[in-house]
Design a protein around this nucleic acid. Structure first.
Lengths: 327, 327
DNA sequence: CTGTTAGCGCCTTCAG
DNA sequence: CTGAAGGCGCTAACAG
């Protein structure tokens, strides 16, 4: 910056003012400075600037698994919101490991991020509170805060699961199996509640033998589905709580070649060309990111002082049907 | 930091030393400082530290489309390499827009990133050279530098396309259509070359009427495929240059219900359960990111002075076959 | 082993 | 409208 100042025959202060767009600079001076900036290819050092003005112009984002299209879209939504406000995004991946998540959050705090968005890996979020305590705003995505107060953006897990299950019941299914994440996972629990509520609403009761709450990936889901479907009293339809489990179920159906209807959370490519009766709970993953981003930015601009109450936003779901639905 | 120093009854300098792990600090002092750090919940200000020591401990990553699983995996690979070396990743999405990419790169440069990895959106990369000129190391991913020298990591586009096409020829196909990106895209051009080379090798010549080099997304690919397949002299197989085009072709096949063999670049979920004869060129997208990350870190640690020659690394491909292959 | 001095590059404050 | 002084929080380099 000194170089630019010398080159333009002004003081460093004037250069600083021009760069910030201060109107109290004579047009001629401004042009001269801009010329020098251009000639020298100068770019202001953000690190130094941030040291002086505080903050960092960055927000942190921690997701559990960037390879899952769901989270990469979420990240894209966050990017979008951040970009609109001139913020940069520091992205990291916790790989579902709570201690790694903890380390990443500390790192972000040390990097002076202006705020962070976290998809929490575990059930307990006490290690996320310190971020808030040190005054760094935090927004949780996909899963609500456990044991702390914080803003969060969720999906209508309950409503979506209930709606999809109801559609299966309307189709005449009376034995609907459940393939879901362990109950410890918030989404798994909520979606199970929805599945159950749809039954109650129709004055039915799910058969516990047709409920599997262990599988977490394609392979385990496939095994669980095979197991369910080989039962002499097998379900005529299955509800799966996420895209990987649905894919496991699809593999099982291919193997057995039985006419079972499938419902599941999360839309996926080519769902329509499989030729299977498929009921999908779809929602806009980008939107979760956008909302979380905006919520965070709100809180950042509110300032550390303002103690707004923790807010919660829920992204709606939509039921889509692929293939023909036999009853 | 001063607070910690006071609390531990030492100077700020000693605190600094403890935090950096300097062994020339008495164990007793160290414990006292650590105690104070803990008591006050202190964390060193990275911004200030970086201003002093130079660099930023961050690398920038610009991809064209994070929603494409290919790029999110690439990002994951970069994360991995960065994490191993204690670097943070500043991620942004250019949405295939060259001017946006340019802005993002400037931003990254201003943020003092230690280096950056870019998946270039356009054909000309002159705007990326300045980054290098200002001494910021840069590595290109997926596409080679155009009009400048730079490190890059590529996929074996040519070899993969050639291998897949050869397999179709071995199966007895003599009329193989081509569905590809515009030739302006490096990958599109290379994959076309591979397709062509496989024909030459077998002393065949592709029929130009069966070559479509315009489509860029699922919808346009579907239309192009329909057009090709409705020809009285229609091809008996199609080679598609990426996952979106392959999906478009799959839709076309579903519509027409003709027994055409498909080959394409990029593996995708459920490819095996479609029940179609499918020849896929697969490769490890994470690996591209990892290599790019390591290459960048190499160059960063080599220092700005060392003028290593530009290096180039190519990730291998593998041909996978799904479904039965009629001839 | 520990403390002092000085300055990284910028911007806020206060004088011209 | 422009400049000079001072300091953001940290750490190299040099004392002690």
């Amino acid at each position: 910056m000194r170089d630019v100042a010398t080159h333009a025959k002004v003081s460093a202060m004037t250069v600083s003012r021009v760069l910030k767009g201060d109107p109290k600079v004579a047009e001629a001076t401004r042009q001269r400075v801009l010329g020098a900036v251009d000639a020298l290819g100068y770019r202001r050092n953000e690190t130094a600037r941030r040291l002086r003005v505080g903050g960092s112009g960055m927000i942190g984002l921690v997701v559990t698994n960037l390879a899952n299209p769901f989270y990469s879209r979420l990240a894209l939504g966050v990017q979008e919101a951040a970009y609109e406000h001139g913020l940069r995004v520091l992205l990291s991946n916790s790989a579902e490991q709570v201690d790694r998540e903890k380390g990443l959050v500390e790192d972000l705090a040390a990097s002076q991020v202006d705020g962070m968005i976290v998809v929490p890996a575990g059930g307990s979020h006490r290690h996320l509170a310190p971020a808030a305590l040190r005054g760094i705003p935090i927004v949780l995505a996909s899963r609500p805060p456990g044991g702390m107060e914080a803003d969060c953006v969720l999906v209508d897990d309950f409503g979506g699961a209930q709606a999809a299950t109801s559609r299966l019941i309307e189709d005449g299914h009376r034995r609907i199996g459940f393939l879901g994440n362990p109950p410890a996972l918030y989404t798994g629990a909520e979606r199970f509640r929805g599945y159950w509520a749809a039954h109650e609403e129709a004055r039915l009761e799910p058969d516990e033998r047709h409920v599997r709450r262990g599988p977490t990936d394609v392979a385990t889901a496939e095994r669980a589905a095979l197991d369910l479907l080989r039962d002499p009293d097998a379900p005529t339809a299955l509800f799966c709580t996420n895209n990987r489990l649905t894919q496991g179920a699809i593999r099982a159906l291919r193997t057995l070649d039985v006419p079972v209807s499938l419902a599941g959370f999360d839309d996926f490519d080519l769902a329509d060309v499989l030729g299977l009766p498929l009921t999908i709970v779809s929602y806009d993953a980008d939107e979760i990111g956008r909302r979380a981003g905006r919520m965070l930015i709100d809180r950042i601009s509110a300032g550390a002082g303002a103690d707004l109450p923790a807010r919660r936003s829920t992204v709606p779901t939509e039921v889509i049907r692929y293939g023909t639905q036999p009853s």
